[in-house]
Design a protein around this nucleic acid. Sequence first.
DNA 1: ACCAGCTATGTCAGTCACTGTCATCAGGCT
DNA 2: AGCCTGATGACAGTGACTGACATAGCTGGT
Lengths: 200, 200
Amino acid sequence: MSVTAITMIGVMSRWEPNARGRLAQAALALYGERGYEKVTVAEIAARAGLTERTFFRHYADKREVLFDGSTRLQQTLTEAVAAAPAGRPPIELVGAAIAALGALFEADERREFARQRQAIVDKNPDLQERELVKLSRLGDALTDALHDHDVPVPAASLAAQVGIAVFRVTFVRWLDDPASRPFPELVRAAFEELAAMTHP
Amino acid sequence: MSVTAITMIGVMSRWEPNARGRLAQAALALYGERGYEKVTVAEIAARAGLTERTFFRHYADKREVLFDGSTRLQQTLTEAVAAAPAGRPPIELVGAAIAALGALFEADERREFARQRQAIVDKNPDLQERELVKLSRLGDALTDALHDHDVPVPAASLAAQVGIAVFRVTFVRWLDDPASRPFPELVRAAFEELAAMTHP
DNA sequence: ACCAGCTATGTCAGTCACTGTCATCAGGCT
DNA sequence: AGCCTGATGACAGTGACTGACATAGCTGGT
């Protein structure tokens, strides 16, 4: 049993596997301990048992290591829109897509990871800058997905923008929720609030 | 007549005056000629007759030199909201505030400057990143201004987001407009489109 | 007129993010 | 065994940005 499940299942890599994951873990730990600015890339690489050069082969820059998940977020979002039945109102498509992100947030470790990550990002303007970009790209992807699903462009971009706004709010609530309610439930509640707000 | 009007009117500064403006002008020219990435800060400073260190005393970083106007934008926006009569619907306040930005875009040189600047920003992801941040902060400021003007928070943030979206669209149209219509006129037209879109 | 302080600038050394290039090493394939 | 490939290491270099200190010209008071 000295061989891990991953080693048995996955494609065997040479050297120590999962260099990318080790780098991300090391970065999160160090950023959390000393703050983003006071950590050098060389230190992250050293903690992961690698060199600085290798860090930059896995991540485009020092910030990107905290935003790795955004591609999976985008992918889940567009798949959910594509899988939805045709002819539904745009806001409903968006609601379903955002709720579908809950699948990525199920495990408790995920929430703990997200919490640490968010605490770091909230303390640094450069990281907030990058987060804005990621959310903007997420909105663009959502707009495209809606458009591919026969939603006319103006309605699509508006619905997508609203959807991203709801996501931001809901994500923070989910991180802070003392009752640990599941993410899709909070999404549903947020969209109901929104409906009540616009239909007095 | 060898003494310029500025020299006669303004407060005489030591050395050559307006170092900040010269840096901005040099940066715009060089970024335009060779692209943002292929220009060094030292080169910008040299063209302005200054040193690299002085550049960083005037601008926080290499990008910021292109985003100097955003503080005046923000100021104009909040003043316009504060000056509006109370009790009007939020979207109307926002429309008036965005239209008020036209005062900053009157002179033809302004349009030419904005055009050059936008061409540069559109070619570089780092600059686009910064632009997103500036627009986001503009939205925050607009939200605050609306809130101070007795608009409840949810309506304020929604109206502000919509306002920023309209601003982005209108600004591009204004830059490209072959008829050179004034900015506030285009803003009005955009808000009418929006109204028609939401009231079929 | 002199001195003191203030402010914008210059100078210099240093850190660190990021890149290009070449060497190396382990495993798979023939 | 020999070759190829993909991930890594080693190393040098560029350029953004910072901290510390020096200097020059103005400004105010005496």
